[in-house]
Amino acid sequence: MDWYEFLFVIEVAVGGLLSGVMYSLVAIGFVLIYKTSGVLNFAQGAMVLFAALTFVSLVERGVPFALALVITLLIMGLLGLAIERTVLRPLANRSPMTLFMATLGLAWVIEGGAQLIWGTQVHALDLGISNAPFEIGGIFISNFDLVAAALALALVVVLTSFFRFTRTGLSFRAVADDTFAAIAIGLKLNRIQAAVWTAAGVVALVAGLLWGARLGVQFSLSLVVLKALPVLVLGGFDSVPGAIVAGLIIGASEKLAEVYLGPYVGGGIEGWFAYVVALAVLLIRPQGLFGRKITERF
């Protein structure tokens, strides 16, 4: 391999890592809810679509950028609260699989609702981030990807410090660790769940804006869940660091495979390659890279 080829590999890998961060961003929304409610929230993708569509429609109707952001945030919070109240609470104490199926139904409702309200056409979303690539040491990096990655990392830092250092955050973790104990010491489970769903809505907004700016805001935005699922499986459903590391692994390996393996099989492998990577790892570590090891009691 000569030098230029080597640089090309690095460039592909870096591009992959950066888009991997975008996968992690969606995955974190899942992790938040899974940690506190034990639900794999399939509607997360629909929430991403809903957030982006609401924001872009507001902006198109002449609402200033900042105000649109605030309004969308409020709407996402309300949506999260509504979901918690109408779907999760009546289904408390039911099997995780039942809850998962309910979020599948929920995904259809939110997707349909978002498009019914705001229409089905594709909206361009300009966040004012330049998409021009720049060069570092012979490698071209997309400016947009870099900014997106930085934003995603900032979000992670905010979330992590929230969990570590605030009272509400600590009670989140208590609920995640032991729901019964948390109730026993008087934590208000409903309020915490509502807060988590709101937080997931906020994460959905950030993901929706970044993904929307890249792909255009349209129905297919809700399909980013399908990108996030293998990341979740690989990282473990209950681990924020896991979601990030797995996102990076999957982003990079997917891009490399696309470039080096794709041509041999006719391309288009990005739809399933991530799943194969995740599966291969899972066969060795069934609880994912960072998931809690399940110690069963008999």
Partner: peptide
């Protein structure tokens, strides 16, 4: 080897 959600997601493959 896999159970629950891990299996469900892997069937998407």
């Amino acid at each position: 080897r896999l159970k629950g959600f891990y299996l469900a997601v892997s069937t998407l493959a």
